[in-house]
Nucleic acid binder design. Sequence first.
RNA 1: CGGGGCGUAGCUCAGCCUGGUAGAGCGCACGGUUCGGGACCGUGAGGCCGGAGGUUCAAAUCCUCUCGCCCCGACCA
Length: 568
Amino acid sequence: MRWSRYYLYTTREVPADAEVVSHRLMVRAGMIRKEAAGIYSYLPFGWRSLRKLSAIVRREMDAAGAVELHMPVVHDADLWRESGRWQAYGRELLRVKDRHERDFCLGPTHEEVVTDIVRRDVRSYRQLPTNLYQIQVKFRDEIRPRFGLMRGREFIMKDAYSFDVDDAGLDAAYEAMDLAYQRIFTACKLEFSRVEADTGAIGGSSSHEFMVLAETGESEVVSCRECGYGANVERAETRPLAAPEPEEPAERREVHTPDCATVAEVAELLGVGPERVVKTLLYETTAGPVAALVRGDREINEIKLANHLEVPEVTLAGEALVRSLSGADVGFAGPVGLPDSVRLIADDSVRGLTNFVCGANKTDAHLTGVNLERDVDLAEFTDLLLVTGGDACPRCGNELGLSRGIEVGHIFKLGAKYSEAMSCNYTDEEGRERPMEMGCYGLGIGRTVAAAIEQNHDDKGIIWPLPLAPFTVLVLPLTNRDESVVGAAEGVYQDLVARGVDVLLDDRDERPGVKFNDADLIGVPVRVVIGSKSLADGNVEISLRRDGEKELVPVEGAVERAAELAAG
RNA sequence: CGGGGCGUAGCUCAGCCUGGUAGAGCGCACGGUUCGGGACCGUGAGGCCGGAGGUUCAAAUCCUCUCGCCCCGACCA
């Protein structure tokens, strides 16, 4: 491709709304253009990268036995009513009406459509298993789109859906996808982590996320160096915490703790460690008010709490509700003497604590010497702990590390949730009708490209990993005025084209400084610089964007060398 | 949806407080000089000051409403 004939316009100005590097660089490098909040055009240079990724994804999906199809963006509301998600999905589902006032929505995901397809075609166990995938635009009317392609409203995603006769089949399908994902991200040369994930609203039994590790990631994950355990903090577990020394039960008494609304303040005033304080958090849930107890030095994992309660979400109670439930200002709630209407659930970290401190349900007062068994009628213990770095690995006990990641892939076992709701059944060997066991496997295409940039850049621009680079070689003649330079560049360019290398020739009539800076910005991995001086000695300069180290190569050998570097 | 901020040239922004001829840098066009890390000089084009209403002799500027965008909190590939 000749730059002068291509459509690639870089910019020096950084867009005002770009917060993270990948967004900034994608805009500056002429890869994307915002059309509306969370909605982007993929400009030619950016689109090439997405296509490179898509090709890798297709290759691995096909190899794993999945079959590509293409489903609509606009979905009939009836399908969504059938699965129950027309109601359940919330405002993220963009609903539209056609000219006949019929309800439709823009597909945020395709379980309904794919299930509808399969139930019409597949009748017998003989036709299973099957796994269908597509690479398609999806739309989720995100509350707050941000970070460019990382969290758009319209985005491109690969999603696969597996259909099996039973759990064992589903397990096999899941494992095949799991492996395919690992192969995909490895092939992209991305540093990623595969972690256990919460299944969330989609439901199902098992779920893993694939995280590209990056500072700007929106997810937190813990991982164990020793045994390879990794989990999203939403889901992560740990071993029982080391409990403070037990003491002989002391007398319970109320102490005056003015303005001590946080554990740290109370602990300091009373001269005890925060691990001897119990924190009581009041939540508002669709299942009624709940008080969640956790040791004072730790935090509640609200996802675990919601899962335990089997509700979609929990919300921390507001001031007014706290006052009406506990009879005190925020910060003084405690398990002793709460109204019966409040369901009391304690994290395991509270179990066995002796003589602890907690709120007295009275403003400016706490209780000391509290002992659960004696003072509280409490039966419900469970794991509500928000695991963090430094906690013990639940498998091997070693210390867990904490890092941030960009969720680029998420695989789920759905089970029969959709197949039952939508009668996606097959007939088994005995002639019985059964719902299919489903799995779904998502991979964010645009997000993965953004993540690749997030992970591979410097202060001058993008440093493409070879497999995702829009072009692998940039031929850069330093001037258009020196016939020999132009001729040599043309020669190298055409030979590389003939070899099938993705090569970009910067034939623009620009000053060298402009070309160099653009070259750094767009990050093409291999650079062939052709200038009058070195060419006078019969040489060209070849360098890698990654390290910038220049290597003088005779013109005749340039194509060979560049092609070799471009091949990895 | 709550809290905060911003809409002025293609882009990044000043001007608004204190009303009176709409500005800068970059980019773009033309001429010239330059040419191995975002050159320089000269000339020029380019604006419904987000939209609607109001106050005023006069509104980018003050007031009201509206639309859009961005940032901080609850979602997810």
